[in-house]
Design a protein around this nucleic acid. Structure first.
Lengths: 348, 348
DNA sequence: CTGAAAGCGCTTACAG
DNA sequence: CTGAAAGCGCTTACAG
């Protein structure tokens, strides 16, 4: 693997000049000299050493993305958005599936620091874990100190996210849509209590209820983990409690998928017996049967904007905070409640 | 951010000694000295600079994974396996969604080379593109030359994959299973012709047909891209051709998902009117309705074994090539063909 | 067991 | 416009 020294030698110039040419530095080099260096680099198949350059600059063109789990379609989509934007700028993307495990998260941040990555994007929501957050704050300060950009894509303990999605408004809109179909008893699979994003969505549920003039009933709110199993467990909890409901809004699509599967097992028809709605609009939401009504969140966009913010931060001109819109998408899993007299359907 | 120089100073030793302690070098250092260095590192919150170390060693503890698309559940699962194994060894994982685009793939490999990553794992299958493969071969040679490990997880132009999955055997087993249910006319959505992995699976289809004593009919084989849209298009092509079939085997789950969706739109009942089977067993396969019969491939395992191979390669002791088993999983999307007299059902 | 020194491959004031 | 030289933070023969 040839180094800049060899390129310089072949071109008959100093390594300083060679460096200026190949690194596209903003520094005058005569056209013929430049051409000779470029030619030498080409014939030697020169690939600059990013580590040497990074050591100099205390920074490599790499962005780390901390996600809950890359196999969760939500995060895969966000990471893809980051990747696409990053590729355009010659940045590489490191994915870190922390499983929301403080130890794993800690370890990943440590490794990213040791790599002197130019930026870290926290794609997952913050956990309400004071000890972890304190340590994270230390690391984040440490990273910013040496010039790294830190960007959050969802609510967390350390401040406002730089880019995020309208969680509260999105869920509220879905609840209003369900109310608009005639539902009065709308249950909510709220996800874990310890996650800030889940709290925002729960707030959205309450807001939607208020907007629709419906009364809140805490027995209709079930907390479970944010996955398929949680959705199934939520359905069981709801049915076990004996409380009446005609629709289930879910804080994310994975919960809705789990709920759909469990209801099918139980022989409960969707949407005939109960309506189900998700949140996120991951790719499979359109492929389930019945297809899932949900709230579309521009996830890839979220990743792209996250990286855009990184670039602005690195350039010293941070963009103002940004909240991406969420939009209700009604598919087959929601309908007017069966028990309702036809006349009242559709009037909220 | 403190450096080893400061640690050495605080501990009152040379940087050589400090280095030997913090890098856990295999070199004798007296216990009390060691303790003082460790103590100093702790109080200074010392995080070693991986770039400086990597510059020395011409290698950083990072593995790049080239995938088709991280939002494709197949690849997300493989990457997760790599990540889990890598984390155990203190390696970070860079994901590169190349979209099977030669230019993107080229550019990613170049960036990975410039980063001096310790290894590159090609998770996606090879493309039959001579120009690209020639260039890839050059890069791969270049990487191996400076000590990087290169591992392939599926068939490609440059040789046998180090770790892979029994594509041919898996599809053949599924075809035999369908024949076992009584199907005689089994169509095959084969994916793209230019992908080596698709060719292996097509071979598996033919093998399964032969095993079951069924005749091949080329009109039953449809080539489309490896995604949902391809599955829908495949169904249309099959129906448009007017050829008779009672089952559709698909070369991957995404095709099957697309087929399922299109059949539902068309009012064709699955499995009553036609059986559908996939390949890979991605997470959603169990959640569709009807749930998808498929071939389970240990994807996370594939990623884990891929990284294990990387470590062995880096240690200079490559593991022998390995083919992971694939296993038929029958769910709701397959059944005996309706037209068949009950007496003959189940006998192949 | 300990340390002084060279060197990994770049970038960038500084001098010309 | 060009180049000599210092330095980024480590590791590792080499000498003691």
């Amino acid at each position: 693997m040839s180094s800049i020294t060899e390129v310089a030698k072949l071109a008959g110039v100093s390594i300083a000049t060679a460096s200026r040419v190949v690194s596209e530095a903003d520094y005058p080099v005569s056209a013929p000299t430049r051409e000779r260096v470029l030619e030498a680099a080409r014939t030697l198949d020169y690939v600059p050493n990013a580590l040497a350059r990074g050591l100099q600059k205390s920074q490599v063109p790499v962005v780390g993305v901390i996600v809950h789990d890359i196999t969760d379609p939500y995060f895969a989509e966000v990471v893809r958005g980051v990747e696409d934007a990053a590729a355009t700028s010659g940045f590489l993307v490191i994915t870190c599936s922390s499983e929301r495990n403080p130890d794993r998260e800690r370890e990943y941040v440590r490794l990213l620091r040791s790599m002197r990555v130019a930026a870290v994007i926290f794609a997952g929501s913050g956990l309400d874990d004071p000890a972890l957050n304190e340590e994270l704050a230390r690391h984040v300060d440490g990273m910013r100190e040496f010039g790294a950009a830190v960007v959050h894509l969802s609510p967390h303990a350390l401040g406002e996210p730089e880019v995020s999605v309208d969680n509260t408004g999105g869920i509220a809109a879905m609840v209003r849509a369900l109310a608009g179909l005639g539902h009065r008893r709308i249950a909510f699979l709220a996800g874990p209590t310890s996650l800030y994003v889940a709290r925002q969505r729960l707030e959205g549920y309450r807001l939607g209820l208020t907007d629709a003039g419906l009364e809140a009933d805490e027995r209709l709110v079930v907390h479970t983990p944010f996955d398929r199993e949680g959705g199934a467990a939520g359905v069981d909890a709801l049915r076990g409690s004996g409380v009446a409901f005609t629709a289930i809004a879910c804080a994310n699509d994975l919960l809705a998928l789990g709920a759909l599967a469990r209801l099918a097992e139980l022989g409960v028809r969707v949407p005939d017996d109960v309506s189900v709605a998700g949140f996120d609009d991951i790719a499979v939401a359109a492929d389930t049967s019945p297809s899932l009504s949900t709230v579309r969140v521009p996830l890839r966009e979220l990743g792209r904007h996250g990286f855009a913010q990184v670039e602005h931060l690195l350039a010293g001109r941070p963009l103002p905070g940004e909240v991406l819109p969420a939009e209700v998408v009604l598919r087959q899993s929601t309908a007017a409640p069966a028990a309702l007299p036809a006349a009242t359907r559709g009037t909220p």
